[in-house]
Design a protein around this nucleic acid. Structure first.
Lengths: 359, 359
DNA sequence: ACGAGCCACTAAAGCGCTAAAGCAGCTGGG
DNA sequence: CCCAGCTGCTTTAGCGCTTTAGTGGCTCGT
C-alpha cells in the first residue's frame, strides 16, 4: 500500500483500522473481470473494441463495485470538466430575498443533473471580483461553460469571457453581446402590456420603481414605459432607479406617495420591492388597490402571500432555467450552433392589487 | 488570442488538424525561464529546491503568462479537489422563497472564495436523490467536504456520508450524528424565550405552525413549546406540523383562526409562513397585533417589508455561513479536530406584530 | 490455401502536475 | 586529495483515465 497523499480526502478520519485505502479504479474492475484496463474503458464508454458479452460483464462489475470515474482523471485527458459556472454579483442585503435565482438554479439543475453536470456557484461583491472568478475557473479548467446574468450596458464581462474562450450564455440581454448567445425575455412587451392595462383601467399617473440602471433589462423597461406613455398620451409617468433593495423600494414609494400628485399606480421591477411598497402604502394609510394599484415585474410566492395579493408579470422561472441550461450544454458541446433564444414573455397575472383609480 | 479556445478542448473532435495546443502548462513556463518543469513546480508551490533568484524569475514568468494550475491535474495527483458540496433537498414550490439558504451560501462564500474553494451546489427532490449525488461526488472525487443541512430524526444521510469517507459537517443538528460534527443553534432556548415573552404579554392560547416534523429542529421546537407551556401553566398551546410551504402555512392559519377559542398568538417556523399567516389574518379581518400576535422563527427582509413588520427570532445567517464554512474547511484539512459548534442563539427582535392580547 | 481483413483485446503513451530519486558541482574537514 | 554533505537542479515515476498502436487468432475471398 503506497503511503498516498496524506491527509486530504482520506476516508476513515482517525488513524487506525481504516479499510483498504483503495480508491476504486478501472484497473480493479479489469482485474475482477479478467481483462485489461483499456477494455474496461471501452466498455464503460460504450465504444467499440469489446464484445457485447464482455461489455456486459464489465458494466455489471462496475455497477456491483459501485465504481465512479475519477472526474479529475477524465478531465486531465482533455475531457470536459463536467461542470458549468454561475457567478452572482449582488450586494449582500438584496441577495437572497429574491426567489428568482433560486428558482432559476432549480430549473437548471433539472437539466444539469440529468446529464451529471455539476453547477459551480460563486457569490461575489462586484463585477471586478466576478471577472477574477471567471479567469480563475477558466485557467483551472474547472468549468466547461458559464452563465452570465444581469447583462449591463457596456458589459465588460462579455469581452472578457469571450477572450477566455469559455463557452457562455448571457441571460437577459438582447442584441450585441459579442459572440455570446443570449436567452432573453421580452421585457419591453411585458411593460407595454402592463401600462396598457393600467391605462385601460383609467390610470394616468403611473410610476415605475426601476432596478439598477446599469442593467440592460432595466433600461429596456424604462424605455418601454416612456414609449407607452407617448403612445397612450400619458403625461405623468416616471421611472425612478433603485438598487433593487427593499429599503430603496420602500423609500422611493414613500417619496412618490408624498407628492402632491401622487401616482395612482406603481410598477415595481422586483417582487421584493413591490412587497416593500405595499408595506409602505399600508403604513401610510393608502388603500391598495383603492387609491393605489401595484404591479410587480417579477412573480413568486412573495406576491401571493401578502394581502392584498399583488398583480404581477409572471413567468415560469423554472422553465427559464431549463432553457438556459439546455442552451448552455448545447454551446458547450457544439460552439457556434446556438442562436439567441427568446424565452416566453412574462404575462400579466392580475390579482388584488390593481383596480380602477380611486375617485 | 490564438484560435485555441475553440472547442471545449474536446479530445477527439473532428479530424485531428489544429491540435489542441491551447493550454499553458508549467512546461511552457519552464521553457520560457530555462529550467525544468519540476523546478517550476517547486517554485510555484513555495517549496525548497530552487534558489530564490530562480523562484522569482519563475513566479514572474507565470504571472506574466497568466498561468493557472490545471485543477484536474492537481487533483489527480491526490491533491484536494478544491471544492465542497451542498445539496438542497426541498420541494420545488417552497424553495427559493426562503432567503435562509441564499444568505447562508453568501456567508460561506466569503470564507470559501478567500481560500479559492469552489462550492458545488445541487438541488434535488428528495433524500434518495440527495444520497445519489453524495455517492457520485464522492466516487468522482469532486468534493473535499460536504455540508449536510436539515438533519432529520433518524437521518440516513449521516451513516451514508460517513461510510463514503467524505469529511462533512451537519448544520442544525445536535447530538448523535455518528462522527460528524455539527454547527447548531439553540432552537430550544429561542422557543422558550419567545413563549415566555408572549406569556408575559398575557397570551395563553399560543399556537405553533411548525415545519416538517421529520426535521430535528422542528422536533426540538415542538418539545420546547410543550415544556414552556408546562412551566408557565399554559393549557392551550399546540404545534401544527406543515411542509414549510406558504400554502400550508396559510391553510393552517385559516383553520386556527376559525376555531372557537382561536389562539391569540402564533409562532411560525419560517418567515415565509409567517408572512402568509399575516396575509390570512388580514384577509379574515383579524387585526395584527390587535387580536393576533405573530412571531416568525426565522428572520429576513420578508419580515421587515410587510406591514405590520413581524417580530422575529433573528440571527446572523451570513455569520452562520462563515462559521459553517470555516468548520468545513477545518475538517477537510484535519479530520477529527472539529467538535460540535454552537452558533449564536437566535434573539427575539420585537417589531409591530406582537402586543398584549386583545380585549 | 494464403494473404487480406476483421475481431476482440492488450500494451503503452500521455494529459498537467507533484514528489521522490538522482546528479552535477561546490565546500570544507580530515 | 578524497569524499561526505550540501545546494540547486533535472530525471523519472506516477495519479486514473482515454486513446492510439499494436497483436494474435479467425474468417474469407479468390
Amino acid at each position: 500500500m503506497p503511503t498516498s497523499g496524506s491527509g486530504v480526502n482520506k476516508p476513515g478520519a482517525a488513524p487506525g483500522h481504516e479499510k483498504a485505502k483503495g480508491r476504486l479504479t478501472i484497473a480493479d474492475i479489469a482485474r475482477e473481470v479478467g481483462v485489461s484496463p483499456s477494455a474496461v474503458s471501452f466498455a464503460l464508454n460504450g465504444r467499440p473494441g469489446v464484445s457485447e458479452a464482455t461489455r456486459a460483464r464489465i458494466l455489471q462489475a462496475a455497477e456491483r463495485m459501485n465504481w465512479h470515474p475519477h472526474s479529475a482523471a477524465r478531465a486531465l485527458g482533455g475531457a470536459p470538466a463536467g461542470a458549468v459556472g454561475l457567478v452572482l454579483a449582488r450586494p449582500t442585503r438584496t441577495l437572497g430575498a429574491e426567489p428568482f435565482y433560486a428558482q432559476l438554479i432549480y430549473g437548471m439543475q433539472s437539466v444539469l443533473s440529468a446529464r451529471s453536470v455539476a453547477l459551480l456557484l460563486q457569490v461575489v461583491d462586484d463585477t471586478e471580483a466576478e471577472l477574477a472568478v471567471y479567469r480563475r475557473w477558466a485557467g483551472e479548467q474547472r468549468v466547461d461553460g458559464l452563465l452570465i446574468v444581469d447583462p449591463q450596458t457596456k458589459d465588460p464581462r462579455i469581452a472578457a469571457v469571450a477572450a477566455l474562450g469559455v463557452p457562455a450564455i448571457v441571460l437577459g440581454g438582447h442584441g450585441k453581446h459579442g459572440d455570446l448567445p443570449t436567452v432573453w425575455a421580452d421585457d419591453r412587451e411585458a411593460m407595454l402590456e402592463t401600462v396598457r392595462y393600467l391605462a385601460a383601467l383609467g390610470h394616468t399617473r403611473i410610476a415605475h420603481v426601476a432596478g439598477t440602471p446599469a442593467f440592460q433589462h432595466t433600461q429596456r423597461r424604462i424605455r418601454a414605459l416612456k414609449d407607452a406613455a407617448g403612445q397612450l398620451g400619458l403625461a405623468d409617468t416616471q421611472s425612478v432607479p433603485t438598487d433593487f433593495s427593499d429599503s430603496e423600494g420602500a423609500a422611493v414609494t414613500r417619496r412618490l406617495l408624498s407628492q402632491p400628485d401622487a401616482p395612482t399606480a406603481i410598477v415595481y421591477d422586483s417582487d421584493l420591492m413591490a412587497v416593500a411598497g405595499l408595506g409602505v402604502a399600508t403604513e401610510m394609510g393608502v388603500p391598495v388597490p383603492g387609491e393605489l394599484s401595484i404591479v410587480s415585474f417579477d412573480d413568486s410566492v412573495l406576491t401571493r402571500v401578502v394581502h392584498p395579493a399583488i398583480t404581477a408579470l409572471s413567468r415560469d422561472t423554472h422553465a427559464l432555467g431549463v432553457q438556459v441550461a439546455e442552451a448552455l450544454l448545447r454551446i458547450v458541446e457544439e460552439p457556434g450552433t446556438v442562436a439567441d433564444i427568446k424565452a416566453a414573455t412574462p404575462r400579466l397575472t392580475v390579482r388584488e392589487s390593481t383596480a380602477k383609480p380611486g375617485r
